[in-house]
Write a protein that binds this DNA or RNA. Sequence first.
DNA 1: CTATTTCCTACTATGTCAATAGGTTTATTG
DNA 2: CAATAAACCTATTGACATAGTAGGAAATAG
Lengths: 131, 131
Amino acid sequence: MISTKGRYGLRVMIDLAQNDDGSYIPLKDIAERQEISKKYLEIIVKQMVEGGLIKGLSGKGGGYKLVKKPEKYTVGEILTLLEGTICSVACLADKNYNCPRRKKCETLPMWKEFDGIVHDYLYSKKLSDLL
Amino acid sequence: MISTKGRYGLRVMIDLAQNDDGSYIPLKDIAERQEISKKYLEIIVKQMVEGGLIKGLSGKGGGYKLVKKPEKYTVGEILTLLEGTICSVACLADKNYNCPRRKKCETLPMWKEFDGIVHDYLYSKKLSDLL
DNA sequence: CTATTTCCTACTATGTCAATAGGTTTATTG
DNA sequence: CAATAAACCTATTGACATAGTAGGAAATAG
């Protein structure tokens, strides 16, 4: 289940893309348009800055801005940054696969296939596809 | 993220299918083979009985048994019973779609498409495919 | 009647989610 | 230079879900 963090973050990205006129867009405006608590968005947006998805400018006239064109972002990379992982099953969450049953587990191949389908969809979807 | 409930429950179903000789299979045996706490499995298995996925018989010689052939179960129905919903996004979790932004939400169509792909995969996968 | 099994209720520790609160720093503008 | 408006930072909180544990009651076969 994708949490509000991922969903709100995605909507911030769309909002930034739709209202891009070259200048920085204040979070206040985004929060109002999207009807999301500005305070909560601060947390989300901070993560997006740290992850290099967007950039922020302090002070009057400041705000946030995309660093790439909308077609250069995938939904997958946005969600992965905010959700930590978009893995559907804990068994696959760490690359080590350190479950002691991994050799004999009858469900693991299915989870891998499922995870592949999920990733393929989300990483092929571009931010520009949502505008 | 599919929780242990769904994952363990699915493994119980596989175990029941693999060890089916017509008689009832005690949970103790399943717990040992699957290396899962029997006490915890009790909770899961109870839900599966209530949901009509399997049937249980008390007393000596008792245990659990599938009510249908493995090819008649889908992974989707098993997970839905145990997880409550396998919905990927809260906006779609209740049939009412009562989000006030549903008309103008730019992300909703994508979430619906995504949800459709997830459901298609899980409901086309049969228990018999995992044996 | 005894052993074995499901069935039932309750409890609990831990962690995550979805925020809220309040203040500090940075930059623009009049 | 002062007022303003914005990002930036740290901490806290209530509610809920997860992943179990504990102990016993009822049912059934031999």
